[in-house]
């Protein structure tokens, strides 16, 4: 994982969020919901963005395609750069090329992302022709190839069907195929398997990983599921109340979680709990935007909090190779 700052001025292939803050409007007031987030997505690597509900994961993910702006989400500071070029400096035309062409998105709910009144074929072909200069016939052939690449053997049949007729797993395959339509370099996947049955989840994960490896994709995986992180990610960023509180390689985070929030979140999973014992819990709730404390956002729920924690804590107050943590009490027993 690259250190922050190391890349400034270079145009190495990467998708970089630097000190990105996003504001939303709550009861008529603009407040930050994402605060100074820095993340780096590189070709060939999978980055997991984890945290509890309401921490700002989806806002961050959607900002990468500058989605959400029509729902009142606005950048308050920072930047997002694709191979060195700011997405905020791009024309609409350039942005359209980036969306789908360089960066594609896969959402959680495979039903709402497909239009029920059009056939699968017409929707896949439309996406292909939006990005590639192909005839209808060529686009159709590409659609068949894409569907076969995501494991749908009877692709021709699927093209004729309507979303209703497909199972959740099949729909998610179609959406993955659509995301791959213009050979993107990066994929942003927001909870791609959460709405699926367990037995189907595993296959979709295998498919995503297979595509990611074969095409050297950079994948941002938004999830609240540490199992999925263990399964898929090279790097992990843990988000809490709008901030990245810890990031590092997957083995660092699993073997040496340093932030009390990460430790607590990993500890309350039933699969790692002691049989017959109550599960460890984190008391309290994630503070919503506008109600963040001035200091460490987690302090109120933290067993290690001291007076010092009421002052702002730098994102990299503790770091070592492949691992950065926003905590003054790293290493203390919880």
């Amino acid at each position: 994982m690259l250190e922050r700052g190391e890349v400034i001025g270079h145009t190495a292939a990467m998708l970089e969020l630097s000190d990105l803050s996003l504001s939303v409007s709550i009861q008529g007031k603009r407040v930050d919901a994402v605060s100074a987030v820095s993340l780096c997505l590189q070709p060939g690597r999978v980055l997991g963005l984890v945290g509890e509900s309401g921490c700002g994961k989806s806002l961050t993910a959607q900002a990468i395609l500058r989605l959400g702006e029509h729902q009142g989400v606005a950048k308050s500071s920072g930047d997002i750069r694709l191979d060195g070029n700011s997405l905020f400096a791009m024309s609409n035309e350039q942005l359209r090329k980036v969306r789908g062409g360089h960066i594609a998105m896969i959402f959680q709910e495979p039903m709402t992302a497909l239009n029920p009144v059009f056939s699968i074929g017409s929707q896949v072909v439309e996406v292909i022709r939006l990005h590639l200069d192909l005839t209808k016939q060529q686009a159709r052939q590409r659609a068949i190839d894409l569907l076969q690449n995501v494991g749908m053997q009877d692709a021709e049949q699927v093209l004729k069907q309507y979303p209703d007729a497909l199972s959740g797993g099949m729909r998610q395959r179609v959406l993955i195929a659509m995301a791959m339509a213009a050979d993107p370099d990066y994929i942003i996947a927001d909870e791609p398997t959460t709405a699926l049955d367990v037995s189907v989840q595993k296959r979709i994960i295998a498919l995503l990983l297979d595509l990611q490896k074969k095409r050297n994709l950079g994948l941002l995986l938004v999830t609240h599921d540490f199992g999925l992180v263990a399964e898929m990610c090279d790097d992990v960023a843990v988000m809490y109340a709008g901030q990245i509180v810890e990031s590092g390689t997957v083995s660092e985070i699993f073997d040496h979680p340093a932030h009390p929030y990460t430790r607590a979140l990993m500890g309350c999973r039933p699969e790692v709990s002691l049989p017959g014992k109550p599960l460890p819990v984190i008391s309290g709730q994630v503070p919503p935007p506008g109600r963040w404390p001035a200091g460490c956002h987690f302090a109120k729920r933290c067993p290690l909090a001291t007076d010092e924690c009421n002052n702002p804590v730098a994102a990299d107050v503790w770091s070592r190779a492949n691992h950065v943590t926003r905590c003054l009490h790293v290493g203390e027993p919880c």
């Binding site: 037995s199 540490f226 999925l228 083995s251 699969e271």
Partner: peptide, 15 residues
């Protein structure tokens, strides 16, 4: 057995 095998792993070493 298939259901149990489809359980998510708990640590990256189990890949």
């Amino acid at each position: 057995r298939a259901l149990l095998d489809a359980r998510p792993i708990t640590h990256p070493d189990e890949r």
